[in-house]
């Protein structure tokens, strides 16, 4: 499975990580080694084996439907990032988090 620069860019875009051509080429080299390692799995016959998502064979616990959370907006928004693009203000206004316009 030879990865191409286009593959890396497609994956990086899905993951929302900018990579330039040079980074993509470096990534190909490193990822190819790792994927080679991963390929070892294909030699194993796994027919009829139930996939294992958790090490415990337990079921989901349910939480009573009772409100216990209080408003911690101010505390949480202290961590809001700076707006950027020349502004040194936090990316918040009237309790909303600010992002570049979302276009549908």
């Amino acid at each position: 499975m030879a990865l191409t620069q286009a593959d890396i860019k497609r994956i990086a875009h899905l993951a929302r990580i900018e990579v330039n051509d040079q980074e993509a080429d470096e990534t190909i080299t490193k990822l190819t080694g790792i994927l080679g390692l991963i390929e070892q799995m294909q030699a194993i016959d796994t027919n009829d084996i139930t996939p294992m998502s958790h090490s415990q064979d337990a079921v989901q616990r349910l939480r009573p439907d009772v409100v216990t959370k209080t408003n911690l907006r101010e505390a949480f928004q202290k961590n809001a990032p700076l707006l950027g693009n020349g502004s040194n203000e936090q990316a918040i206004a009237n309790g909303l988090y600010l992002v570049p316009k979302v276009i549908e």
């Binding site: 875009h13 929302r16 990580i17 990032p81 707006l83 570049p100 316009k101």
Partner: peptide, 23 residues
Amino acid sequence: GVRFGHRAAQYDDLMDMYMKSRA
């Protein structure tokens, strides 16, 4: 880069903000 953590200092639009902040 929306609610906490690093947001790129310069970006064009939402997609660019994601891509750069995470890169």
